[in-house]
Simulated scan of single mutants.
Amino acid sequence: MASRKRSSASAASDAPNPKAPCPCGSGRRYKHCHGSGYAPPVTRPFEGLPGEADWVALRELVPAATAKLRTTDGKDVTLASVLPGGAPALVRASGEIVLGVQLQASSDDVSRDLGTALAAALEAPAGAPVDPGPVGAAGSSGPRLQDLLDATAPLEVTVHEDFGFWLEGVEPGAAAQAGLKQANEAILPTVRLEGLEAAYWVRPSNERAHLRWVRPEPEEKLLDALARLRASGEILLGEGTRYAGAFRAHGLVVPVWDLPADVPAADWAAPAAAFQQRLEQALASTEPLTADERRARAGLLSRQITLR
């Protein structure tokens, strides 16, 4: 009995304090994380996929866009920003598989939600509805995108002016045409800046435009670099621009600039490329932040929000 008591006491002493931060690094208390059997959300669901930053952009920023994917067994798949009704996937009569990244519901692992939908689409016959089950349900055991997609195939995004790609290869009825018209009316003009990864110009009104740029760098390193540029006055993209702040989405930081609405999107590619060079130099710096840079960093952090 004494031996059992000592063993029980030893096991109890080895367990983390329920009120202490969980050892997994989620930031939650242990009792609300692994101590409760709860699996913390996957912070970067698209990590390891080619074009992670563009995956985040298609999920959160871009209204109408497509890209080509390839599965590990060589099958071609079309990735779409969103499908009619928020459907997770469809198989056209031609056999083309289309996967929608913007889902109506999602779990704590978006990659598993999308992987589950893709796996169901790969098994569905041409022209048949895709039924992946309750996508977004907690505790799903379906595959992740990283299990199904060829990681050597680059992600090349095509931004569309409307959702006409929904009806490619089909004869739409009146209801489908009406739904397409309604969806098209809600689209904000969006352009992916040429030569830059995941940099998207958008004009929400005739008075203003924005550049929203999903960055692949680790958050702390990126914040240090942006602080250096903010303190030196090099964070702007040119006359009439303003650094508006940033948000986090799926583990990546998305800086946002306000831009004059009357300047065409293509004209911002060169200023953005110049900023990219300044940012790379700031990222390479190993010097401690100065007092002005620390104040700039605190200001940047105060203007940052989390979407996911």
Rank of each mutant, 00 (worst) to 15 (best):
R4N: 11
S7C: 01
P16C: 06
K19Y: 10
A20W: 12
R29A: 14
R29H: 13
C33N: 04
R44N: 07
G48F: 07
G51N: 09
E60R: 13
E60D: 13
T66W: 02
K75T: 12
T78L: 15
S81W: 03
G85N: 01
G86Y: 10
P88V: 03
A89P: 02
L90T: 11
A93Q: 13
G95A: 08
G95M: 06
G95F: 10
E96H: 05
V98M: 09
G100S: 05
A105D: 13
S107W: 06
S107D: 09
D108A: 13
D108Y: 02
R112S: 07
L114G: 09
L114R: 04
T116A: 04
L118Q: 07
A119S: 15
A120F: 11
E123W: 00
A124R: 08
P132N: 02
V135E: 04
G136S: 03
R144P: 02
Q146D: 10
A151N: 00
T152Y: 02
P154W: 09
E156Y: 01
H160E: 09
E161M: 00
D162I: 01
D162N: 14
D162L: 03
F163W: 10
L167I: 12
G173F: 04
G173T: 02
A175W: 03
K181L: 14
Q182L: 14
A183E: 13
T190K: 03
V191P: 00
E197C: 03
A198F: 08
A198W: 06
Y200A: 01
W201F: 15
V202D: 01
N206L: 13
E207M: 11
V214K: 06
E220L: 10
K221P: 00
L223K: 11
L229S: 05
I235M: 11
I235N: 01
L237S: 09
G238S: 04
R242A: 13
A244D: 14
A249I: 06
V254S: 09
P255C: 11
V263S: 00
W268A: 01
A269P: 01
A269M: 03
P271C: 10
F275N: 02
R278V: 03
L279D: 04
Q281V: 14
Q281L: 15
A282C: 11
E287L: 09
E287F: 00
R295Y: 09
A296T: 03
A296E: 02
A298C: 00
G299M: 09
T306W: 06
